[in-house]
């Protein structure tokens, strides 16, 4: 295979060490681009592709960005970058000039020196399944180097149709953001039918490592759903947690179910105003509910 034929991916960021993205210590690869628009997204700059408009050039205080001309993404000087985030904040599209086109070999080369410390990799995003060929090639090559890969997905693309990814992945981490379709649409702008289909499909195959639900309340005033019940205007957290736990229990899945208390850090200000943090007691009650419904291992974080 010639070098030119090696798949190339659009990579938002590589985190060489992570303790919160699967078992053990893992390198996390964030791919650029996402088809959901979640209110509580913590890295909204990984969603859109860069149009090359150049609006971020002036925002950089470190001179790390240079015009590429011809509507191409700016050239980013990694050595100069101070990781301040000003460029992404200046981008009207919700993109970042720091995403890089990397081949599988280049990407794995960047984490090679950390290999003795790693149990595997986790491919996240953005939404990594939107670059299916690159994702599959990355998982295969990484596994060949002794680093099996977990896939962290929003579940928006049916994985039953992706046999190569299924075969190459060590397991999957899936977000179930809301059980109710209207609520899911309100939170993410997307339909949840494929997500629930993926949940059932992956749970049935024993391929789920972790399922996650972000526990967020509707913001802006009292009555915003503090009870967690299905009251008017509130998110039906109870319903989401209960139904998700039931699917896991019915499939005999050993997946861990992680309930993540929403926190506003890194969330776009306009969107953060639509949400509120749940109190720890509510999170614990929902965890208890998930356990009662038969989820194997439930965590609150």
């Amino acid at each position: 295979m010639s070098a030119a034929a090696e798949p190339v991916g659009l990579v938002a960021r590589i985190l060489p060490f992570s303790a919160v993205d699967g078992p053990g210590n893992r390198a996390v690869v964030f791919l650029q681009g996402c088809d959901f628009d979640c209110s509580y997204c913590h890295n909204p700059e990984t969603r859109a592709a860069c149009s090359g408009c150049g609006a971020c050039l002036a925002a950089c205080p470190a001179g790390a960005l240079a015009d590429s001309g011809a509507g191409l993404p700016p050239r980013w000087d990694q050595a100069r970058c101070r990781d301040c985030g000003a460029c992404a904040a200046a981008c009207a599209l919700g993109s970042s000039p720091r995403a890089r086109r990397l081949s599988v070999g280049e990407l794995l080369g960047e984490i090679e020196r950390y290999r003795p410390f790693l149990r595997g990799i986790t491919v996240s995003g953005g939404e990594c399944t939107l670059q299916p060929d690159f994702l599959a090639a990355l998982l295969e090559a990484s596994r060949a180097r002794g680093l099996p890969g977990l896939v962290d997905t929003n579940g928006g693309s049916p994985l039953a149709a992706r046999p190569r990814i299924l075969a190459a992945a060590e397991g999957f981490m899936l977000d179930v953001k809301a059980w109710d379709p209207a609520e899911h649409r309100a939170l993410t702008g997307a339909d949840n039918a494929p997500v629930l289909e993926n949940l059932r499909f992956l749970a049935g195959r024993g391929a789920l490592f972790e399922v996650r639900t972000v526990l967020a309340l509707r913001g802006g005033g009292p009555g915003g759903g503090e009870t967690g019940g299905a009251q008017e205007g509130a998110f039906d957290l109870e319903g989401t947690v209960r139904e998700t736990a039931r699917v896991l229990a019915r499939a005999g899945s050993r997946a861990r179910y992680r309930l993540i208390r929403y926190r506003p850090y890194g969330v776009r200000a306009a969107r953060a105003a639509t949400l509120a943090e749940p109190d720890p007691a509510l999170a614990e009650r929902l965890a208890e509910l998930a356990r009662r419904e038969g989820a194997a291992e439930v965590f609150v974080s």
Partner: peptide, 23 residues
């Protein structure tokens, strides 16, 4: 010093130790 959340993933510590000793 690790974040208290590391408690839910002690395997991370063991991986770090393995790499540290191998180095």
């Amino acid at each position: 010093a690790f974040e208290p959340t590391a408690k839910s993933n002690p395997g991370q510590i063991v991986d770090a130790v393995k790499g540290f000793f191998a180095s």
